[in-house]
Design a protein around this nucleic acid. Structure first.
Lengths: 123, 123
DNA sequence: GTCGTTGCAAAGCCTTTGCAGGGAA
DNA sequence: TTCCCTGCAAAGGCTTTGCAACGAC
């Protein structure tokens, strides 16, 4: 079915090494340190496979576009710093899904994005 | 500074007529009923102007990309139906910004997206 | 040897931009 | 008459796709 390739492995290594949501360019750049020939199209194709396999999760951030993070983490949300542009994970969830769902609707999932200034930029 | 044009007026009319978040194609299509020559580039340019003027708000939905809605509404969030793909406004907000903000961080704003099945699709 | 995978280039979307003509004030 | 705005076409990003060569099994 799926064959092991050094390319896919390199991409997974990037996520094992850097534990935060990553964009295509960052994945490509870091992945090339392992496999110099690593191609953009290959990265796109493998990200798709890894998302389908449930190994990665695709997240759509309003200000930075599509990013990918390891799947299987505890339910969490994200904080985007408007100063340094980094995306942080926020543990826990203070969102009441039930009380926000309109009558008759069924909520299966939700996402929350916070924007502001992170603690290092605030200094 | 800014001149009145039939094109910009047509775009605003679309939002007065249809009270929900709209994408570029929908705006273009409906706007052309008023101004047949209405061009894509003009729509993009005017949406930008209207956002800067504070008349529109740009929203980035994870599944449908960039949409625009009238600004000045009460704080609210959105519900995306996975069956009919429509985007609904949810009044009120059951999100506790303060308790979700990591120590030392400053949250200026937040967005919430719910996904699920709307009441009409559920029938 | 198979056939999934890769690299490369081309093509597809969506959005922005350059430019000359057109129209509001 | 000004000069902002529009339509058109070209150009820019990002992502996907076709294809021949490659390589895991």
């Amino acid at each position: 079915m799926k064959r092991k390739t050094s390319q896919r492995n390199a991409i997974q290594e990037v996520f094992r090494k850097i534990d935060r949501p990553l964009g295509i360019n960052e994945i490509l750049e870091v992945g090339r340190r392992s496999v110099g020939s690593l191609n953009q199209a290959t990265v796109y194709r493998n990200l798709k496979i890894l998302v389908e396999k449930g190994w990665l999760k695709k997240i759509h951030t309003p200000e930075r576009g599509v990013l990918y993070e390891r799947a299987g983490k505890e339910h969490h949300h994200h904080f985007q710093c408007r100063s340094c542009d980094r995306l942080f994970e926020i543990t826990g969830c203070a969102f009441n899904e039930k009380s926000s769902t309109p009558p008759g609707f069924i909520t299966e999932d939700h996402e929350v994005y916070l924007y502001g200034i992170c603690s290092s930029c605030r200094q």
